[in-house]
Amino acid sequence: MQVTLRIKRFNPEKDKEPWWGEYKFAAEPTDRLLDALNYVKWYLDGSLTYRRSCAHGICGSDAMQINGSNRLACKVLLMNLGQKITIEPLRGYRVIKDLLVDMDAFLAKYRSVRPYLVTHTPDPEKERLQSPADREKFDDTTKCILCGACTSGCPSFWADGEYVGPAAIVNAHRFLFDSRDEGGEDRMQVLNTLDGVWRCRTIFNCVEACPREINVTRAIGEVKKALLYRKI
């Protein structure tokens, strides 16, 4: 099939404004969009810049706005995108170059919720046990790969860059609902604020964008409810 990639390009060292680059070439319908981007970079324009690493939907490097929605370039096939494909960098983050965005602020918010097991009680002799039922409570939120597609697709985040964002809340949920964790109070200082979970307007763009099919809004809703009824 013939495809045309319309890519939003921007090099802050050369360009005053972003511009659209168009690249036409033949590709297989079963190619992934990442394959098409690689084709552009390797054969048509070596200056095109984007992140990629594992290319199998695990590392979360190649999240971008594809035909208006946030997706992983390695998880969408050309045949599902049509012949003219519009690609833009993730919204709400500073563009470093082309499709490469600055994720520092995103990762700082992720770190702010202490996304690791926090304990205050002495370590048990062997290990901290957990029942399968308790493990099930946070199963969905263990799947996050920190691609940033959810946070960048959230209108609350577009309006307020200080919002901690869906990705950080998902990762907080993973530990808040872990029966072995004792760091709930610390995380609440970040989450129980105007720029914490209460900034969420249940728009569900995060759910639509998540390449791991995490029910992000539900996770945020569970944290809100736990806060409301003081269950943490």
């Binding site: 706005q65 209108p155 569900f204 763009n205």
Partner: peptide
């Protein structure tokens, strides 16, 4: 930052339009 009109150009789900 994201411009006001760009809120309309993102292709979210029905939740996005219902929020707008």
């Amino acid at each position: 930052m994201v411009k006001p009109l760009e809120y309309l150009t993102y292709r979210g789900g029905p939740g996005h339009w219902s929020w707008i």
